[in-house]
Design a protein around this nucleic acid. Structure first.
Lengths: 119, 119
DNA sequence: CATCTATGTTGACACATGTCGAATCAAAGC
DNA sequence: GCTTTGATTCGACATGTGTCAACATAGATG
């Protein structure tokens, strides 16, 4: 059991929402908080929108750039709001367009939950 | 583009279901596959059950050890089946009890999706 | 074989969720 | 002001999902 924590890609100061999934059983409260984040990525359309934002240059994109996912524009807006409520995206209006960008710290925390459990 | 893959904790030979979320926009098909895994962990009860299995000694546990999550026994069985269908858990009957264990490769793949996107 | 215990399956129900069309808001340009 | 374009909100609907009680199944034990 190598306990060497050598993950160069992960920030060491991500807020520790919850312990790694294999450290101890999650409490009910921890599970509610953590499941909400996984749930936000648990829809194909939302995952595509999120990936489109994350892969866009600068880590941000306006809605007009990513709304080509096969659903109507209100539905796109609905999903973006859910991702925003889950803390995975942040939005900002600049003139005519609204830009969404990823929230890196939360994403890193989710990654740690899984990568620590995958050893 | 730095293509340096330096993640010591992660198996290099995990089946590459999908690219990291920030590499390029996911296709519809990739999003469906990936979202299914996130969705499986998007329920508090399932997340607690999964964490209970993952944190149990040996990475496996019988249902009787983890079914104390505040819902009825059929509901526990229902959620375990969903985790199994999503490929996150595997089950095996040994005598009276049924043991569940985590599927490490799939978990690592999910972790890579996020940690690569978190840089 | 009968019975007990541990799990899984089925059917039903309330509730959440994804989706769209229509209406609304916000900024820019005429 | 009025219109146009981009984006969100609202109202409604169909579908999906979590939950439980009841029943079914598998294995162990008498």
């Amino acid at each position: 059991m190598s306990n060497s924590r050598a993950l160069p890609l992960l920030d060491p100061d991500v807020q520790p929402c919850c312990p790694p999934l294999n450290e101890r059983p999650l409490t009910a409260e921890e599970a509610v908080r953590t499941a909400a984040m996984f749930k936000a990525l648990g829809d194909p359309v939302r995952l595509r929108l999120f990936s489109a934002v994350a892969s866009h240059e600068g880590g941000e994109a306006c809605v007009c750039d990513i709304s080509d996912v096969g659903v109507s524009q209100p539905t796109v807006s609905h999903h973006l709001k859910k991702l925003k409520d889950a803390g995975l995206l942040a939005s900002e209006r600049r003139g005519t367009w609204v830009y969404y960008r990823v929230e890196p710290s939360v994403l890193a925390a989710m990654g740690q939950l899984l990568t620590s459990a995958a050893r």
